[in-house]
Nucleic acid binder design. Structure first.
Length: 273
DNA sequence: AGTATAACCTGTCTGC
DNA sequence: TGCAGACAGGTTATAC
């Protein structure tokens, strides 16, 4: 469910809620969440530790403690809320009396407990690709990604190449750069690569300003309970059968690698063979 | 290196 | 109304 803008929106609320707070209690309700530790190990490591920072890398949330870090992925349905409900899988009680609850309807969410020395060098973060919102996002680095014959939509979704894009923002950025989802990346011109290079962070930033996309506000809300509103800015995603906002041609959908791709057949002409 | 498939779960929507 | 099947924002393991 959540892609970079949604995770970033969650991160900033969590940061305000728990920066410099001490974790008094960690309570795991569903051990399937835990990838590399037991409930006891987690409790032992985090209780009475201070949360120094809540960071984000790609779609991962990172709670930095003094001597460890908690790396959490929301997958399809994970969310953080401030009130317990019947889908709570994990909760953290803080020293100000407040609690944070990790909620996960589909139970795909994950938690890794890792040591603090460069988190980026350890699983599950070690293989993540370029971050659109950091200094690594240079045109030179970006160009390196275009040497294979993969289809552009699949390449954008590959977290080992670019960290943070999911199905919604991939479809949207391709529309905004007039690229067909099936265009092989090694046939894309330098000009077009440069456009993508600029549009990806621009789109993500724009979406962050709208607190991300809440297609179904039962699923994605920020911890303070606010839904995003970028769904009203979407131009092709989830708009099959509706007119293209630029040319009125009917938006189409097709399956690409088990995922739905949406595009305007006129603005995004298919790769010429 | 690439792709295709299934798997992890639960809920909702569609069509018969 | 009931029920089967498809589908959903993500990622990974496995088998070609």
């Amino acid at each position: 469910m959540p892609e970079l803008p949604e995770v970033e929106s969650i991160r900033s609320v969590l940061q305000g809620q728990c920066k410099n707070r001490i974790i008094e209690e960690s309570r795991v309700e569903d051990t399937r969440l835990l990838q590399n530790c037991t409930t006891e190990q987690l409790r032992h490591t985090v209780e009475q530790q201070t949360i120094r920072e809540v960071d984000r890398i790609g779609k991962y949330l990172i709670f930095r403690l003094d001597r460890a870090a908690l790396v959490n992925h929301l997958r399809m349905s994970g969310r953080w809320i401030l009130e317990e409900d019947d889908r709570t899988r994990w909760s953290l009680t803080l020293d100000d009396g407040n609690s944070l609850y990790f909620d996960d309807l589909r139970r795909f969410g994950t938690l890794h407990l890792i040591s603090e020395n460069p988190v980026r060098k350890q699983p599950p973060l070690q293989k993540l690709g370029l971050e659109p919102t950091t200094n690594d996002w240079t045109l030179q680095n970006f160009h390196q990604l275009f040497k294979t014959s993969r289809e552009i939509k699949r390449m954008l979704l590959d977290q080992k190449r670019i960290a943070g894009l999911g199905n919604i923002y991939s479809s949207e950025v391709l529309f905004r750069t007039n690229l067909h989802p099936e265009q092989p990346v090694n046939t894309i011109s330098s000009d077009r690569i440069e456009q993508l290079f600029r549009k990806i962070p621009e789109l993500l930033q724009h979406a962050i300003e709208h607190r991300g996309t809440s297609m179904d506000d039962q699923l994605y809300i920020t911890p303070s309970g606010s839904p995003g509103n970028f769904q009203f800015q979407l131009q092709v995603y989830n708009r099959e059968g509706e007119p293209c906002p630029r040319c009125d041609t009917t938006i189409e959908r097709f399956k690409q690698g088990q995922r739905s791709s949406y595009f305007c057949p006129k603005c995004q002409s298919p790769p010429s063979s």
